[in-house]
């Protein structure tokens, strides 16, 4: 089994403040992994470093063995905030930008995804509800045929119908050999989607475990496990 993601001794400081330290993480190709942790734990920073959006960390990050930032960026499809686009932009114009910038953008996949997620791409960006905006970001992100997908809190503050559609679209359209990292601080609704969970605590990887192993070893769900690890009910020597 090859590792799609290999992070070695990664540390990152911002204005003398430690954001991440001594992060070591290997993720096998094809897995769907939940990146869990409280707000401010460093989940988003870790994704930004992987995607080469944030720079200046110590240590190495390899995506499909590529450590070079520019090459990594080409292999990763990262959900973005769309803040760089004019609020009045039509969704179809944003799609055109994506299609130009990313050679791996699939027009067909975009059509399939927007149809399934019920997105009208004649709309303007500033007219979208929270749920539709998140769905559109997912459609753009998954339309790229990337090796690794990084979804940063894609379910934050959206209605349950949109959430279900997004989950289904991930199951439907993630290629077998594509690897996916999904950050969240609440997991119950996506637990069945995750092969593994990585818990970030105190600025580093606190535990990395298969979801099924959590269920069989501890007899608890992923959410309970996460809370137990955070609350200190499960100690390091039990992991």
């Amino acid at each position: 089994m090859t590792n799609a993601i290999e992070i070695t001794d990664l540390s990152y400081r911002k204005n003398t403040k430690t954001i991440l330290h001594d992060v070591n993480l290997q993720i096998v190709q094809g897995r769907v992994v939940g990146l869990l942790g409280e707000n401010g734990a460093g989940k988003t920073t870790l994704m930004r470093l992987m995607a080469d959006v944030a720079k200046g960390a110590k240590g190495t990050i390899a995506i499909n063995q590529e450590t070079d930032g520019t090459k990594r960026r080409g292999l990763i499809s990262f959900t973005e905030s769309l803040r760089g686009f004019r609020p009045g932009s039509k969704l179809s114009q944003i799609r055109d930008v994506y299609a130009t910038v990313y050679p791996d953008f699939s027009a067909q996949k975009y059509i399939d995804l927007t149809t399934f997620l019920q997105i009208d791409d004649d709309l303007e960006l500033n007219k979208l509800s929270r749920g539709t905006r998140e769905k559109f970001i997912i459609a753009l992100t998954l339309s790229r045929q990337a090796a690794v997908y990084l979804l940063d809190e894609p379910f934050n503050g959206i209605d349950s119908m949109s959430r279900k559609r997004i989950i289904s679209s991930i199951i439907k359209w993630k290629a077998d050999d594509a690897t996916m990292l999904i950050s969240d601080h609440y997991v119950t609704e996506i637990a069945a989607l995750l092969d593994e969970v990585v818990i970030i605590k105190d600025h580093t990887v606190c535990t990395h475990k298969s979801s099924e192993e959590i269920r069989s070893q501890f007899g608890i769900g992923v959410e309970d496990f996460y809370e137990s690890v955070y609350g200190g009910d499960i100690h390091d020597d039990e992991l």
């Binding site: 769907v32 279900k164 439907k172 993630k174 989607l193 995750l194 092969d195």
Partner: peptide
């Protein structure tokens, strides 16, 4: 397999 995964809303690997 993928259709079953969609129907059950679970991971394909599972």
């Amino acid at each position: 397999v993928r259709q079953l995964a969609v129907d059950l809303t679970v991971n394909v690997n599972t």
